[in-house]
Design a protein around this nucleic acid. Sequence first.
DNA 1: GAAATATATTCGAATATGCTTATATCAAGG
DNA 2: CCTTGATATAAGCATATTCGAATATATTTC
Lengths: 94, 94
Amino acid sequence: MVIEKDWVVVLKALAHPTRLRIVAELLQGTKCVTSMQDLLPASQANISQHLGILRNARVVDFTQDGAQRCYYVCRPELVGGLLELLRDNPAPPA
Amino acid sequence: MVIEKDWVVVLKALAHPTRLRIVAELLQGTKCVTSMQDLLPASQANISQHLGILRNARVVDFTQDGAQRCYYVCRPELVGGLLELLRDNPAPPA
DNA sequence: GAAATATATTCGAATATGCTTATATCAAGG
DNA sequence: CCTTGATATAAGCATATTCGAATATATTTC
């Protein structure tokens, strides 16, 4: 199996509680930064930093709408699939 | 969507080139630490540390065979599924 | 064009990760 | 029990992440 270094970038991007919540929210539908501030216990600057990391990993992208940036998951099958796998495969007993 | 903190532990465990290679190798079949040393450009101590992290995340487990520990992926559907999703969902163009 | 709103970037301190070297544990054979 | 082979753990250092505070940029409105 060939392992692309991109994969590590994606996994690292998702391996953070706030970022995982961000993508879970974005899977439900496009959101701008301000509306994410209402959903998450994090500051504007911090959310923006996390979005930058997700953007670099090519996990999210945005469309500009006036002064707002409407973020969305640009690989929904990947991200949705990952979350589904995690949900359906809990840690084994002891 | 409820996000378990376990998920972040799993993602963090996999978000490292060496550890990702380790699980990819283990998906092909059980291996002991010594034989992994032949496959990976990492020291014994380092491989053992990575295996400890994967163990904590409940991604791998082992059976003791004499002095050897035979490691295997204890959630093959999860790990195999993740690798498959990554392979099938490359980064979108620009 | 000044003010207000939305978002991004920079910087620094705290904390976490990763790796090396050295040492410990532990099982098997003699 | 002493050695050897297999694996784990600990200590220490270098580097990377994280997050808050402050500041910058861009867009709309008046």
